[in-house]
Nucleic acid binder design. Structure first.
Lengths: 290, 290
DNA sequence: TCGGCCATGAAACATTTGTTGCACGAACTG
DNA sequence: CAGTTCGTGCAACAAATGTTTCATGGCCGA
């Protein structure tokens, strides 16, 4: 009974529509126009909204070759399923495997970090991005584990502002860069407890130089947040385990870059395309194949 | 809106998740990871696939403030309803035009990435950690934006296994390291579309050398996943915006390090303490004050 | 006009749905 | 160790769902 379905259920419906009885046409049009509700609401609900008889839906389904409304709805549901990554059945497997201690540790971490992401305030990020947008130059600082965040931010920002962004200490001792801070520039400092002396020094230098200071930290009381124009908070200790979590900081960095990029408009887009073309020309990437 | 902050039902679920009973956590994770099916399939169907009791779904809904499963599902279906009269692309645009357009972009990103974290399979991470635990030496590879992930992993692993971990190309040309791969060693390669040639070469070298290959990628079809002993998947494209998201990869890296550490037992703990003492002695960190 | 046919709505049907009461067991408390 | 709470699976429940049946009424050909 289940045919290979060369057409999507909606197409089948539209094709068969003209040859149907009047009332079934009305119902069919209603389903086609409200296919989302068709998959979620009950048949009786739909009938009430469409001003038709519930039985009409069953008859419509049978009229276009399905065994009943349930089967039609199932087809519609599968047709509009997002991201056809994996069928329903195979996705459940991974979690189910028992009370393994290691697996539990991992899922606990993901749970906590997933919730932690949602608690990050979005407003300050948008404001900080505006500050980055108008900055003539952007310095980025992060030591120890925060270095990875700093480098990601540096990488993404340089994709569309290649010669205005650099990591403090990236091309020599930090001290050389500290003296280069100027008003109108922006300095980003990333850090969490325990705070490194070096990052605090950078923050203080930025403050004294009159540069816009953006702190990405786990607390407003963090020393590098003193005097900062923008403080972007994340939860480093939210997840169980032994090391503080950088997931929040990474998410902030990526959002910061994304918003700054969108503020950059067509100019930024053009720069990004140029960069991509250059990378492709250097055949950095593996070419896509069908 | 009387409430200060209105979360989507999925967000509420993810926030409440960590504080729920174990069985309800499992069910909650399942719902969060399969929210589309949650809106379309019946409660009993879901229970069968998730391997849980149908009643657990009702209890989950009540635990997070709904009157029952029906109400939770209604909220979920409304949350993922496509706005009428406008296709997706148009809707995305129009939403980014208000005064808070940037803020909306950020919250959308966090929401998507928060959901993406829960879809990461935990089991393979635990297995990969066991492989790392027994590896005599660990090599880590990541290029371009993935370099930051590689460096974080390198940093955290070296905290308790300082002389067995290193980044490929960290001390000279990559080619020198490729020849050093041996059986009994582990090679971690991180990458997502578009894949760099360099990372694929490292993966192939590891495979040929008989080393344990661990791929952290966005697809099982990624070239560096060919022949890999462990493939850890994350969603790079899940979040709106212009750059792929590294949040999932970072979360995986951190979990990998955490589990490997816990497998290390007291020996690893001792090593970590030694490292901390040494850093404190060098007064790297700002001393805590009351 | 009659008789067959079909479309249509209302009501009765068997199923499936979400829910709830209950019992058992583990974990915690005094 | 007893007493309590809490989490959990099972089974029965009422409500709802989709389907079917039946009666009605309009339409067309004889």
């Amino acid at each position: 009974m289940a045919e290979p379905a060369k057409f999507s259920p909606l197409s089948e419906l539209r094709i068969a529509l003209p040859s149907l009885p009047m009332r079934l046409q009305e119902v069919g049009r209603f389903v086609a126009a409200n296919d989302y509700d068709a998959t979620t609401r009950s048949m009786r609900d739909l009938a009430a909204v469409a001003g038709a008889d519930p039985a009409a839906f069953t008859r419509l389904a049978k009229a276009i070759g399905y065994s009943g409304w349930d089967e039609l709805r199932a087809a519609l549901t599968e047709a509009r399923r997002p991201s056809q990554l994996a069928p329903f059945s195979v996705r459940a497997k991974s979690r189910r495997h028992g009370p393994n201690a290691d697996v539990a540790l991992v899922t606990d971490k993901f749970d906590a970090e997933s919730a932690g992401l949602l608690r990050i305030p979005a407003q300050p990020i948008a404001e900080a991005a505006r500050a980055l947008h108008v900055a003539k130059r952007i310095w980025i600082t992060g030591y120890r584990s925060c270095r990875s965040v700093a480098e990601l931010l540096n990488y993404e920002l340089r994709l569309f502002r290649p010669d205005q962004v650099q990591i403090v200490g990236g091309s020599g001792p930090d001290d050389l860069d500290l003296g280069a801070f100027r008003p109108g520039q922006a300095v980003i400092v990333i850090g969490f407890l325990p705070y490194t002396h070096a990052s605090v020094r950078v923050a203080q230098a930025a403050y004294r130089a009159g540069a816009t200071l953006i702190a990405i930290a786990d607390s407003v009381a963090a020393p590098m947040a003193e005097g900062a124009d923008h403080v972007l908070l994340f939860e480093a200790a939210s997840s169980p385990g032994f090391f503080p979590s950088l997931t929040g900081a990474i998410a902030i960095a990526q959002s910061l870059a994304a918003v700054t990029f969108s503020l950059g408009g067509t100019a930024a887009k053009k720069r990004l395309q140029d960069t991509e073309v250059r990378l492709a020309a250097a055949s950095t990437y593996v070419s896509e194949k069908g």
